[in-house]
Computed example of a mutant assay.
Amino acid sequence: MDVFQSIFLALIQGLTEFLPISSSAHLILPSRIFGWQDQGLAFDVAVHVGTLSAVVIYFHRDVSGLMQGWLLSLRGQRTEQGRLAWLLILATIPAAVMGLVGKGIIEGSARSTLVISISTILFGLLLWYADRKSALTREMKDIRVRDALKIGLAQAIALIPGTSRSGITMTMALLLGFDRRTAATFSFLLSIPIITLAGLYLGWQLMTSPADIDMGELLIGIGVSFVSAYACIHYFLKIIERMGMLPFVVYRLALGVLLLTFSLQ
Rank of each mutant, 00 (worst) to 15 (best):
L237N: 12
Y201L: 14
P193G: 07
S187T: 09
Y230P: 03
T196M: 10
R165K: 08
P210I: 03
P193Q: 07
R75E: 09
L189E: 04
L218F: 15
T137D: 06
D62E: 13
A183M: 01
V145T: 13
F8A: 15
L114P: 09
R111C: 08
I57T: 13
S53F: 08
T120Y: 05
M245C: 14
M98H: 01
A110I: 02
R78S: 13
P210M: 01
G167E: 03
I240S: 08
S109F: 05
M67D: 00
S134Y: 03
I151N: 05
A231T: 08
L176V: 06
P20C: 09
F186N: 11
S191A: 15
M207Q: 07
Y58S: 04
W36P: 12
M170F: 01
Q13H: 15
L122Q: 00
K238A: 09
A46S: 14
G221F: 06
I7M: 11
D44Y: 06
Q81I: 00
V56L: 12
L100V: 14
I168M: 07
Q205L: 08
H26L: 11
D212A: 15
F248Q: 10
L27P: 13
L52F: 02
L189D: 00
L88G: 02
R242E: 12
K150M: 14
S109K: 14
F8Y: 15
G256S: 12
L127W: 02
E107L: 13
Q39N: 06
L264T: 14
P161N: 07
G35I: 10
T196R: 00
G76E: 08
I93E: 01
G82Y: 06
T51S: 13
L72I: 00
A198R: 00
R144C: 03
R132D: 01
G76Y: 09
A231W: 12
T169P: 07
A211E: 14
P94F: 10
G244D: 10
L125A: 14
Y235E: 03
S73L: 10
T92F: 13
G203T: 02
E217Q: 15
M172C: 13
M245T: 12
Y235Q: 08
T261H: 13
S119R: 00
G40Y: 07
A130P: 05
A184Q: 05
L88C: 10
D44G: 02
L258V: 14
K150D: 00
L90Q: 01
T163M: 04
L125M: 12
H26W: 11
F43A: 09
G203R: 04
F123L: 02
T16Q: 11
Q39I: 05
D147F: 05
R78M: 07
T171D: 05
L246P: 00
F186K: 08
G203I: 01
A154R: 05
A254G: 14
G102M: 08
A156P: 00
